[in-house]
């Protein structure tokens, strides 16, 4: 039995088809990344998989339970962490945990034991008696995830778990996700942080305009676009916009962008580009202080499949 089985799922809002005939399955214990630009259909898919929103057509099962017809049974084995930190700020951290546990009908002694353990794990136990409106953004996020774990879920839906967080909260959450994965919990992760998906996920699906554009292991996806290799180079005298234009005009360079104190040059032939860069340095009386060749990243796959334009500077994807 699969943890998630999705078959020809469609969601329409009037004339708009938000999710268009998607099918996939997630085996038990897998960490599955669900990537896509804003408005691609990620949240709509999660709302259907968690039974909040009924699909227009198609079917989804969670551990064999049809989410539309056996909603309660399907939800009992899942934890849901929304993109927004939806905690009750007028309640204490402890009261939030108790409420979440009672919604899953967990007995008093078990819910108190679970809540204590999880809050300690998230470094919130000392503040459990404080009202949440006094918590920082990172603490609220950690509490949101803690509430999603209080029932000991076999399947965890994580919607943008680390978006916009401080380093400490980010590390605690990433460690927790890694622990859950090693404990055999199935994780359905949506994120804008492609590197996060690359590190954590066994497989990723890339959804765009309601369709699944690709679905595979990150490394296999990267192999499909070997043409998008790159050379990363740093010069002694910095990164001027004029230099970026000059590098773009080198032979075999398809595109170039500035990344911090370096340039990233995209090419199908890194060897040729390395030679071109060295010649450029010589003719412009500068020195190359570092140069690295890189295979295609998951972000490159994402950009290629979704047809997104990279930003001129950092090339951030959102």
């Amino acid at each position: 039995m699969e943890a998630i089985e999705v078959s020809h799922l469609v969601k329409q809002f009037g004339d708009l088809t938000a999710v268009n005939d998607i099918s996939f399955s997630v085996p038990v214990g897998e960490t599955f990344g669900f990537l896509g630009p804003n408005g691609a259909g990620k949240t709509t898919t999660i709302r259907m998989l968690t039974g909040i929103s009924p699909p227009t057509s198609g079917k989804a099962t969670i551990f064999g339970h049809d989410i539309m017809h056996e909603t309660v049974a399907a939800r009992q084995s899942m934890g849901i962490v929304s993109e927004i930190s939806n905690v009750y700020t007028d309640l204490t951290g402890w009261q939030n945990m108790m409420l979440a546990a009672q919604l899953y009908r967990i007995g008093r002694s078990e819910r108190e034991k679970n809540a204590s353990e999880i809050l300690k794990r998230f470094e919130l136990y000392e503040r459990r008696g404080d009202k949440v409106h006094g918590y920082s953004k990172g603490m609220r996020r950690r509490l949101t995830i803690a509430m999603g774990l209080v029932n000991g879920p076999r399947l965890l839906f994580l919607d943008e778990p680390t978006s916009g967080l401080d380093v400490e909260s980010n590390l605690i959450i990433r460690d927790m996700i890694s622990d859950l994965i090693s404990e055999g919990v199935t994780v359905f992760l949506t994120t804008h942080n492609i590197e996060e998906a690359n590190i954590l996920c066994d497989r990723v699906a890339i959804i765009d305009k309601g369709h699944i554009a690709a679905i595979d292991a990150p490394e296999r996806l990267k192999k499909t676009i070997q043409s998008v290799q790159s050379v990363e180079v740093a010069f002694l005298d910095g990164t001027s916009p004029e230099r970026l234009d000059e590098l773009r005009r080198l032979p075999m360079v398809n595109n170039a962008r500035k990344e911090g104190d370096k340039f990233k040059l995209f090419t199908e032939d890194p060897t040729e580009v390395i030679g071109g860069v060295m010649a450029y340095a010589q003719t412009h009386h500068t020195r190359v202080i570092s140069m690295t060749t890189l295979g295609p990243s998951l972000e490159d796959v994402f950009v290629k499949l979704t047809g997104l334009q990279r930003g001129g500077g950092v090339g951030a994807i959102d």
């Binding site: 968690t50 927004i84 700020t89 919604l103 009908r105």
Partner: peptide
């Protein structure tokens, strides 16, 4: 506050 979604998604 999206806390209503928490209730809607409960079992």
């Amino acid at each position: 506050m999206a806390t209503f979604d928490r209730l809607l998604a409960a079992p």
